[in-house]
């Protein structure tokens, strides 16, 4: 479930990046790479888990699925937070810098 949610986040962010390409002022490309990196790593994790559990892998308990759903959503939120911090530090539109300078004046 966590892998599935992360893959969907990666696909959506890639579509948004592609729609605005080559302009990437908002660093959406970074966000999509964050999610793709996690998706690839969880895919490896899933393959190893499948090798261990076999068909049981496809029949998780409802409680585990719910837990994984919350984890998936938390992971997506963390990805967005990392992206937001990078965006505010890079400040491509100069909004943060402008706000700080106007306060000083």
């Amino acid at each position: 479930m966590t892998l599935l949610i992360t893959v969907f986040a990666a696909i959506i962010s890639t579509i948004v990046w592609y729609k605005h390409a080559p302009n990437d002022d908002m660093h959406v490309g970074t966000l999509s790479l964050i999610y793709w990196g996690a998706s690839l790593m969880w895919t490896v994790d899933a393959v190893f888990e499948y090798a261990e559990l076999k068909e049981e892998f496809f029949h998780p308990a409802a409680q585990d699925m719910l837990n994984d759903l919350f984890l998936g959503l938390t992971v997506v939120a963390l990805g967005l937070i990392i992206w937001l911090i990078k965006l505010l530090i890079k400040d491509p539109k100069g909004v943060v810098k402008g706000a700080l300078l106007s306060k000083k004046n």
């Binding site: 966590t2 992360t6 970074t30 790479l33 964050i34 999610y35 793709w36 990196g37 996690a38 998706s39 690839l40 790593m41 969880w42 984890l71 938390t74 992971v75 963390l78 990805g79 990392i82």
Partner: peptide, 20 residues
């Protein structure tokens, strides 16, 4: 830089899973 984003992003999100 693409590889850095893939590796750092993936590691950070996986680290959260391990904390979880």
């Amino acid at each position: 830089g693409w590889l850095n984003n893939l590796l750092w992003g993936g590691s950070a999100l996986l680290a959260l899973e391990h904390v979880w």
